[in-house]
Amino acid sequence: MNTRNTGRRGTGTAVTMTLGIAALASLAATYAVGLSLPRTYEQGDYSKLIAIHPGIAWASYVAFGVTALASALWLWPRTRSLAWDLLAGASAEVGVLFTALTLITGSIWGRPTWGAWWVWDARLTLSALELMLLLGYLALRRVPADSEVRARRSALAALLAVLVVPVNHYAVQWWRTLHQGGSLSLTPKDALDGKFIFAMVLGFLAMTLVYAWLTVHRFRVAQLEEDLVDDDLDAALEARRREAVTA
């Protein structure tokens, strides 16, 4: 992977345009299907949130996973490239967005159904921890350092932080939580109606595509920023050389 974006034409290409259209179309479909879901006996209108909340949470897991995978690829000597470090950073930043939205939409769903905006339940607490870990990871990336030093310590931090994702995923099975179990793994007796499963799966697709589109653009922004730093460094070195010649 080359970090240089020689074209310098912003962050859009035909591929990202296609990805963007697919993301927008699937998001629009998710909203249309989700908002037209019928009221349920247990939750009334609030069950319509099933179209967005699980998909957003899934996208936050994907973001964490991509950050960890890109970090591992940077650490592996054969695949080491600055691009993997930039991708890890881009994915983590988008991950903050989706993790924060997971907490927000979860609280909005919890208030009318549980009677509380927040409870220190294992799933909610671990989701909040994920957000803190991602913010900490991004803060670590901003500590001034050589790009290789930054990449190494960020990669190690990401690989440690990602361990919370499987724990969070299985939290609803390992501990007694207020949060419900996995919607797609309920026993047939408790299985969701087909319309709700369809809306939820559509939400998974839409949020994954939105995540991908945002991450590709954020990655390219990071490449352009890196090129600017290189250009500034080259200009500064050139200025010093000229000073040395004229002195």
């Binding site: 310098r8 912003g10 909203y31 949130l49 967005i52 927000i104 909005i108 922004v221 920023e225």
Partner: peptide, 30 residues
């Protein structure tokens, strides 16, 4: 429906705001 609209609305607003910032940032670095 207030909570439902809030959930859908905040999600759309946050995603749109970030997408707008990323695209703007990319263009400003041309």
């Amino acid at each position: 429906m207030t909570y439902v609209w809030a959930g859908y609305g905040i999600t759309l607003a946050v995603l749109a705001a970030y997408a707008g910032w990323v695209v703007h940032r990319g263009r400003s670095l041309k």
